[in-house]
């Protein structure tokens, strides 16, 4: 699978309140959540983002609460994957459980610019910047998580295999 999209760049320590503010948590409807995605840092994000686009961020992306509304909002906004220097741990697991692909690459996070177009090969973690021509290699995804993404998330995985 190849993902391709425009880069939206964010800084370090983007927390779940920034990804989806708690004031919208009285719903888990993806169509409502996506409208408020990233609202408190970039109020125009949800109107600018197009299907396939890619979020690139610094360290500790998704820190804060355990809300799955965060990866849901990002996925519903059409974002195809998130690439960051590092992820907060609950966001990390929520993403795989929801079937949202995420990649860790410090090098990419520091070199890629807002608006660049990236091409991501999910299986290998090889990522190309089509604007600058640079290529990056993200850290490999463990076997079990590859299964989760292939199955379409944790629940589909359990349905398919009858176990965790």
């Amino acid at each position: 699978m190849i993902l391709k999209g425009r880069v939206f760049k964010f800084g370090d320590d983007i927390d779940t309140d920034a990804i989806i503010p708690a004031r919208y948590l009285s719903t888990s409807d993806p169509f409502v959540l996506k409208k408020h995605c990233m609202e408190d840092i970039d109020s125009t994000f949800s109107s600018k983002v197009a299907p396939g686009d890619i979020i690139v961020a610094g360290k500790n992306f998704g820190c804060g609460s355990s809300r799955e509304h965060a990866p849901i909002a990002i996925k519903a906004a059409g974002v195809s994957c998130v690439i960051a220097s590092s992820f907060a741990r609950i966001f990390f697991r929520n993403s795989f459980n929801m079937g949202l692909a995420i990649f860790e690459s410090d090098e990419l996070a520091s070199q890629v610019r807002e608006g660049d177009i990236l091409e991501v090969e999910v299986a290998t973690g090889v990522i190309k910047d089509l604007v600058t021509g640079k290529a990056f290699k993200a850290r490999g995804i463990p076997q079990f998580m590859q299964e989760l993404i292939a199955d379409g998330g944790l629940i589909e995985h359990i349905k398919k295999r009858g176990r965790l």
């Binding site: 804060g64 355990s66 809300r67 799955e68 609950i90 697991r93």
Partner: peptide
């Protein structure tokens, strides 16, 4: 616990960790 502050119970000597809703469903 599907709440990030589930780690509170570590104060009792438990291994307690916050997860997402889907983990709770699983």
């Amino acid at each position: 616990g599907a709440d990030s502050h589930t780690c509170t119970y570590g104060g009792l000597g438990a291994f307690a960790t916050g997860v997402g809703s889907t983990d709770f469903a699983a």
